[in-house]
Computed example of a mutant assay.
Amino acid sequence: MMDGDRPIVVAYIDGACSGNPGPGGWGVVVLKSDGSFHEISGSSEGSTTNNRMELQAAIELLSRLPANAETFVYADSQYVVKGMTEWLSGWKKNGWRTSAKKEVQNIDLWLRLEALAHNRSIQWHWVRGHDGHAANERADQLAVAAVSR
């Protein structure tokens, strides 16, 4: 989809883990203007957590998009959505510490995601997982299938 010269991207992301920690996978579904999907997925190296795979899905999506894309990201992870929309600025202001003065978990991935999101037009939206939304369900299926790779 395009808005003038600016591409519009609507994407659904998800992460999965077998055990937590354990082997993990991530999935991304990008909706195309003709109603079809573009899908990407991958797996972790070794033991990881579900939250890390959720973040990795977001990183993989943004790393593949043009910087000028108007992007709408849908995730069933409140960790990712609230992290990007509510918590990130406070973490940075507090030296990457939470309001409870603990070090932010997964800081390596948050730093990568923050760098990729910088100066981009991105809207982050939470969707209820396993609620029958086709693109969200497909992102979940891709993430789960990637766990066993």
Rank of each mutant, 00 (worst) to 15 (best):
W126V: 10
G4R: 00
C17M: 08
W96H: 06
G83W: 00
I59Q: 04
L88H: 03
S121K: 13
S18K: 13
F37Q: 11
I40W: 10
E86F: 14
K82Y: 12
A69W: 05
H130E: 06
F37A: 10
W91H: 06
L62K: 08
D108M: 06
G15M: 04
N136Q: 06
A135K: 07
S44E: 02
G95Y: 02
V73C: 00
K101F: 11
A11F: 01
S148Q: 11
K82V: 12
T48Y: 04
L55C: 04
I8P: 05
M84C: 05
R120H: 02
L109C: 05
M1G: 14
A69C: 07
D108T: 02
T71D: 09
H130W: 09
H118L: 14
F37S: 10
G19E: 08
A16Y: 00
L111K: 15
L65W: 02
A16L: 00
G4Q: 02
A135N: 05
L55Q: 01
N20R: 02
A58P: 03
K92A: 11
W124T: 04
N119D: 15
L113M: 06
D108E: 07
R149V: 08
P21I: 00
V104C: 08
M84I: 10
H125T: 07
G129W: 00
M2D: 11
E45A: 13
D14N: 01
T98L: 04
E86R: 14
Y12V: 06
E60G: 08
A135F: 12
M1H: 13
N68H: 12
G46Q: 05
S43P: 10
I122T: 03
A16H: 00
E137M: 03
L109H: 01
G90E: 05
G83Y: 00
L88R: 09
A143W: 00
Y12M: 01
E60M: 12
E103K: 15
V73F: 05
D3C: 08
K92I: 15
W124H: 06
G27D: 02
Q56D: 09
L109G: 03
V81R: 05
L31W: 07
D108N: 06
A139P: 00
G46I: 09
D3R: 13
K82F: 10
A11R: 00
I40Q: 13
W110G: 12
V10N: 12
P66I: 11
R52Q: 10
G35Q: 02
S148G: 11
K102A: 05
M84K: 04
R52V: 07
S43N: 13
E137W: 07
K32H: 12
W124A: 04
W96R: 03
E60A: 13
P21K: 07
L116G: 01
L31H: 07
S89D: 15
G83S: 04
L111D: 13
F72A: 09
G129L: 02
G15D: 03
P23K: 10
S77Q: 05
N136G: 01
P7H: 07
G95I: 01
D3L: 14
I107Q: 15
N94M: 13
S148N: 12
L113N: 02
M53S: 07
V147Y: 03
G35D: 03
D131Q: 13
P21N: 01
A143E: 07
N50T: 00
W87D: 01
N68D: 15
M53A: 11
V104G: 08
G129N: 04
V73T: 01
W110Q: 08
R138Y: 08
L61Y: 04
V10E: 13
V81F: 06
N119T: 08
N68K: 13
